[in-house]
Design a protein around this nucleic acid. Sequence first.
DNA 1: TGTCCTAGTCAACACTTGTTGACTACACTT
DNA 2: AAGTGTAGTCAACAAGTGTTGACTAGGACA
Lengths: 186, 186
Amino acid sequence: MPARRPRSAAATRAAILDAARVRFGAEGYERTTLRAVASDVGVDPAMVIRYFTNKQSLFAEAAEFELDLPDLRGVAMKDLAAVLMPRFIAVWEKDGTFLPLLRASATSPQAAEAMVRVFAGQVVPALCVVAVDRAQERAALVGSQILGLAFSRYVLRVPPLAEMAPEQLARWIGPVLEHYLTGDPG
Amino acid sequence: MPARRPRSAAATRAAILDAARVRFGAEGYERTTLRAVASDVGVDPAMVIRYFTNKQSLFAEAAEFELDLPDLRGVAMKDLAAVLMPRFIAVWEKDGTFLPLLRASATSPQAAEAMVRVFAGQVVPALCVVAVDRAQERAALVGSQILGLAFSRYVLRVPPLAEMAPEQLARWIGPVLEHYLTGDPG
DNA sequence: TGTCCTAGTCAACACTTGTTGACTACACTT
DNA sequence: AAGTGTAGTCAACAAGTGTTGACTAGGACA
């Protein structure tokens, strides 16, 4: 019998959560199996249920995250992208929680709702201080571009976008954000 | 025994394909079951296999589509969005083949590749006639915005975007396309 | 030493899925 | 009326899923 060296409950719970994030992020909700997550951690599948009761609950916890957008007051319109882009990229690439949610939201209505909540709760407020009118509309447009970028870069891996440097990306996106936030279409 | 009224093979095949498109579009690849598709058509699951041999093949056939982008030569830059947007929206809303592919590409590498192929084979060439240099890069950026829009509007159903009129959408997007196709960031 | 609590395993359940192969009703030919 | 090809059904398999409940090693404490 190989010596069984029990860690603390909190440690395994955290390990499971981490593994789940990676798997959900790489393979999406349905293709991620509890058995795979468990085996990543080197633990019995039953443990996953013990600590998270459900696959759905596990996902819900794995997909919760903070964007931590900086305060945009006092940032010049033309510098907006340069300020925001690094933050977005950091969140995207932490292989933490964004990708799982993005992937899952394509097929799961609940995940889609969660995504909308993140958007409404964190992106819209941050942009409200720079968009004078029709904030919802403007923020949604900004969101659509940001989301499309994430999808093209990390999910589809469209060559030119997947390899583009963050600064270059910011230079392209900058005028677009400016347009969405201040432009005035009929 | 209720009278069994066999249709032509081609007819059922087509019916199955249609049902599959709807299901794949609404629920994604993994959550779509052959049994559900079959029951939509009112037929035995075995028929689906008989005509398509595989779930994967069924999907592959269901997700093949033509964008039929118009020839953009002679279209003024400022009218580009007004020309393109209706075409995109038509394809998106036909509940034909775009949504299945978009949804599936979030979790299936093959679907993602298929999406990239559509993009490289149909979007890039159409835009090449209006983008002078760095066509790949410019087209990819345009694609990211278009994709993000589709995702926000049809998958996430972000309120302001889901309900926006196509013309309004075109007015917002217009300057962005123009920027991506003609702008010059360091 | 004996007794709990806790982190963990084990084996199995109930169910769903894609897929198969053998069978059957129907309609048209002869 | 007999026969034949085709559109379709039926029942089942094999594999994999989330989930459960009963059990066990191992340290802490009395």
